[in-house]
């Protein structure tokens, strides 16, 4: 099977995290189960904070990035568990869930995650989901609006001049 190299890197990074964090990656509750409604709402809201809609291009969920992330998680228990832990963390307060917060509140929470300890779940969840979401998002030509690229490099290439 040909495995996308970025997916290999993703899986390796997630695996290293669980090893470093001392989490049991073979625990019984580790399953490749479909995400719950709460989890899908949480991740969709999270990736739209990472990649919101603007005047040029759509948001992460506009481009189905959230669905593609869940699809990736179908074949990786580690990644699936990271998503579960991350979504659980986003929903850990007594108040409204992350997806019910205002955009400003969500932004503030994600900003905190981006600055938190590298070896703890919030930061690792932020980093890995950010990396994955951006890779999936910018793999779609409709997100290239405003860039000096509009089609894949082949078959036309980029004949000179380039200035």
């Amino acid at each position: 099977m040909k495995l996308n190299i970025q997916r290999r890197q993703l899986l390796k990074t997630v695996g290293a995290f669980f090893m470093a964090y001392g989490l049991d990656i073979h625990a019984e509750n580790l399953s490749l189960s479909a995400p719950s409604k709460s989890e899908t709402e949480m991740l969709s809201a999270f990736v739209d904070v990472l990649i919101p809609r603007d005047q040029y291009t759509g948001s992460a969920t506009d481009c189905q990035v959230d669905k593609q992330i869940w699809s990736l998680a179908e074949s990786s228990e580690n990644f699936r568990r990271l998503l579960a832990l991350g979504c659980e963390g986003l929903n850990a307060t007594d108040g409204p869930s992350f997806s019910e917060l205002s955009y400003q509140q969500q932004y503030k929470l994600v900003s905190w995650m981006a600055e938190s300890d590298w070896n703890h779940v919030p930061r690792r969840f932020y980093e890995i989901v950010r990396q994955t979401a951006l890779s999936l998002y910018y793999a779609q030509p409709e997100t290239w609006q405003g860039l000096s690229i509009s089609v894949p490099p082949q078959p036309n290439g980029y004949p000179p001049p380039w200035n």
Binding site: L50, P52, D54, A114, R130, S135, Y138, L147, I149
Partner: peptide
């Protein structure tokens, strides 16, 4: 391509990342 820029040479998230 844009993935390299988005994942290697930018900081943060949100509209300012785009």
């Amino acid at each position: 391509g844009p993935i390299a820029y988005a994942t290697r040479s930018t900081t943060g998230f949100g509209r300012q990342l785009k």
